[in-house]
Write a protein that binds this DNA or RNA. Structure first.
Lengths: 205, 205
DNA sequence: CCACGGAACTTGATGTTGTTCAGATTGACG
DNA sequence: CGTCAATCTGAACAACATCAAGTTCCGTGG
């Protein structure tokens, strides 16, 4: 995001770009957000950076590889966004843990709704073709995993409920975000459904 | 699906095709399933049907409009598939209703895993650009809606739990399917998670 | 029975796209 | 100061979406 055209010393004008790779990814992210991944052209991205189309092939095997990087970036931003909202709520109390849980759900859906195209490409086949997906460690999202640990340790959730609930919670959140994005669930129902989910999953009152 | 190249009388060889529109959609569906929506070309679809590329423009405004029809077809097939599995289980008992519920969940995820590209395009921006999405009536999927009514009327679910649970159930199913498709949830955990969902949502034992 | 109008499709052309490759340019290192 | 590898350019190519103009077909009214 911040690695756009700010090359170390010689910004822009020299023959060598300095950090073309991240500049291309950054421009591609912007373009994806504007027109959607399926309408992004390699040439347009290269032109925006001020470089010939073939320059991209020294950093990416494919157009798909570039989009793969965009997908990975999208996932990263999603996790960062959720993490930031969660981290903003401090405290060891059960109440704080419950607020963090709530904030995580809202942040996940909010990100999807405010970055629809990026969210979509993050869960498209592109990110499978590329390694370096930063969210999955043992197959689950670290932020949400810690979140549940938090709830358990503060007594906001039963420990035996936890393990199965994690994947269910992630799945529900993701489904909610996707369907809201698609317009199949009205956005104004989302908060209500989020609290319903908390209730079902067993976040104790 | 069955409206491929079987024109009413004069099949195939005449100048006029008979039912080019559905033939194109059908071929496009096949091609999407093979290579994914982002790698489908209008020309290849037209060639498969045995028609010049520009012929498609008499039936669709755009390549995107054709893919929109593919998306709608995908949604339709998904609903049909779930509906068929549910309808295969007869009976008015609470037990039967519970089995139907279980079958619906499995069918939903199974469809996603066995038609990954079609499932993806069905929930891509393409289907927004096109009317005629057959799944949503008041915003929810009819099959699943009836399913829950079923459960309630046979005593398998509390009536007051129903309304909120519907969207949550759909969202969870959809999230589960998407994440399994993405490899973020191992496919072998899906049945376990499905029963967990039933339990959480309040399908009485 | 026949001309005619319109719908369905083709041909040919245009501009854009992804991709490749031979060569020009550069900074770093000896 | 010269060499070298990394980086970028430019021109080229095939495939692509799209469109305008022409061609073939079918049904319909005279």
């Amino acid at each position: 995001m911040s690695t756009a055209t700010e090359a170390p010393e010689h910004a822009g004008r020299s023959y060598h770009h300095g950090d073309l790779r991240s500049a291309l990814v950054c421009a591609a992210v912007a373009r994806v957000e504007q027109v959607g991944a399926e309408h992004v052209s390699l040439r347009a991205v290269a032109a925006e950076v001020g470089v010939s189309p073939s320059a991209a092939y020294h950093h990416f095997a494919d157009k798909d590889a570039l989009l793969g990087e965009v997908a990975a970036t999208g996932l990263h931003m999603l996790v960062e966004s959720v993490g930031a909202e969660v981290a903003a709520i401090a405290g060891d109390t059960r109440e704080a843990a419950r607020l963090r849980f709530r904030a995580a759900g809202q942040a996940y859906v909010s990100f999807a709704l405010s970055h629809p195209q990026l969210f979509r490409v993050a869960f498209s086949p592109y990110c499978l073709e590329h390694p370096g997906v930063p969210t999955t460690d043992d197959g689950s999202v670290p932020v949400l995993s810690e979140l549940l640990n938090d709830l358990v340790s503060t007594g906001g959730m039963n420990a035996d409920v936890r393990d199965d609930s994690e994947d269910v919670f992630v799945a529900t959140l993701h489904g909610l975000a996707t369907l809201a994005l698609q317009g199949m669930i009205p956005a104004e129902r989302v908060p209500q459904l989020l609290s319903k989910i908390e209730q079902l999953i067993g976040v104790d009152d």
